[in-house]
Design a protein around this nucleic acid. Structure first.
Lengths: 162, 162
DNA sequence: GTGTTATAGTTGCCCAGTCAAGTAAATTCT
DNA sequence: AGAATTTACTTGACTGGGCAACTATAACAC
């Protein structure tokens, strides 16, 4: 009877449970908040954010994909959505005609600025306010360790950008 | 230039980034490992686990949904999948004929036992081995705080079950 | 008991994102 | 230079899961 717990301690099990729960809940609530307040999906919001932070407000599709931790094809579709809303534009790269740069438009920047306070408050309510300073530090470090790609994937979180 | 960072500190931003990254990466790699080694989706594996831990190896659909942090309709579909593989069976509840109990079958239990070592190793490699004891403790607590349902959702992790 | 409301699931429709195959430009080989 | 390979996407087919509408049983009002 019972489960013998072969080599996973109580604490480890508790962590895995907490982790899977957080993994389901957090993106859902953050996305729901943003959709409700700004009619903007969280993914699209993040894409706009990364573009706004990039020099020249532009990124290649594959850079968008990397930052969103998404496949390139997923990023293509995300960019399609944003392009349809005219929040970004595709520009054929001068240096490499195979793919396009994704450029943040004026409208896109405006939209991002509108959405930002809402997301910030949401992140506070749902996450940041629930942590003390120590937890924040430890959590960041720990999540970075486990989020780093393992071995069969290449990590590249913040390429050196000029 | 620069973004003025209206009320979100550098550290807070770093946390949110680490969090969104982990949220994308962790379930993907755990699921990929399990699919590769056991041809079993992570969600289905969790469902089997929760059933195996339940008394009588049975749960109502809504309990499955709660444990998986999923909607009832999502749980219905998960159970459909498992039922098609004969890993679980639906049994009309004697006490409440509106819905069925989901019962783990012999085959289902066997399958779970086969899959378990693989998932355990995967969890170790991808998560547990990357944390020290302190991080484990803090992370568990922190994730439980942020995974707890907020205000517009009712939390119910372990309803008192007879 | 009959009518009303609440509860438990199921189903149709949709959307985001993955994978595999396809296209087109760039690079390397010779 | 021309062929072969690699790179950078794009696209078609599919899957998982969400929402809203629906069905069926249960519980409550009378």
């Amino acid at each position: 009877m019972a489960h013998h717990n072969n080599g996973m301690t109580r604490d480890e099990k508790a962590l895995m449970q907490a982790l899977s729960r957080a993994i389901s809940v957090v993106p859902r609530v953050l996305d729901a908040d943003l959709q409700r307040d700004q009619q903007l999906p969280l993914t699209d919001y993040f894409a706009l954010t990364y573009l706004s932070e990039a020099e020249g407000q532009r990124l290649r599709i594959n850079e968008v994909a990397t930052r969103l931790s998404m496949t390139i094809s997923g990023a293509t579709r995300t960019v399609n959505r944003l392009e349809a809303l005219e929040l970004v534009a595709r520009e054929r790269s001068a240096s490499d005609g195979r793919g396009a740069d994704v450029v943040l438009t004026e409208v896109g920047l405006k939209r991002l600025k509108e959405a930002w306070p809402s997301h910030r408050d949401s992140a506070r309510r749902r996450v940041l306010d629930r942590l003390d300073a120590n937890e924040l530090a430890v959590l960041t470090k720990a999540l970075n360790s486990i989020g780093a790609e393992p071995d069969d994937f290449d990590s590249a979180d913040c390429p050196p950008q000029s």
